[in-house]
Amino acid sequence: MLKPLPDPDWLDVPRPTSPVCILTDDGSPMTTKLADSLTHQGWKVVVLSFPVTIVPRKSALSPGVERVILEDMSETHLQTQLTTIATRYGVGDHGRGSEIGAFIHLNPLFSFSRQAGLVYDVAERAIAKCVFLIAKHLKPSLTTAAQTGRSYFLTVARLDGVFGTSHEVNFGAIGAGLFGLTKTLNQEWTQVFCRAIDLAPRLDPEVSAQCILAEMHDPNLSLMEVGYSSQGRVALIAQT
């Protein structure tokens, strides 16, 4: 069942010592807005764009925000691009793998008509696997960065903002997997701030970016997943 939550408190997080934040490109203005907000917070934002076959559009980026493109979805190419990001934009302690301090995945909106029924979308499946592999390869960076400040692994899905419980929106089912991944990483990487967020598809990009930023500053480390919709901020808990 859903548990209503108040707005989070705001933890003053010192300027990260590993200030590169990788943000995946969902092809919407949300990427633009969030990249700007993160830049304003002191992050060096690198937007990682998927191949056009996976996400057809690329978000517009403000000056100062970098873009690195995945030409294909292979693990080797992904590794190459992650290394490129670390060496090109990382100003951290080279050789110790702490150049990247944050990873935020914005899952593109996969929304289908009612007639389409239950959809396991091929592109969404490819993205889910890619995020799984990104987690695998960013583990050294994020866990090292956690030693000197708050480092982040965030996934943002757009189900219905209430973890799929509304029974009103025909969202892509595979995006739900991101919650399982992030909650697991939260257990494996106890020092890394891991949070899975579900945003109602109708939320405005500006509001969405503010919600994500607020979550990044939440002092509450026992919360692993949170949803935003017209019902406000909620968690999903098992009824006892």
Binding site: A128, L159, I174, A176, G177, F179, G180, L181, T184
Partner: peptide
Amino acid sequence: YAIANEILNKS
């Protein structure tokens, strides 16, 4: 496994 099971949950 967590990914797959969460997909089943939301399915």
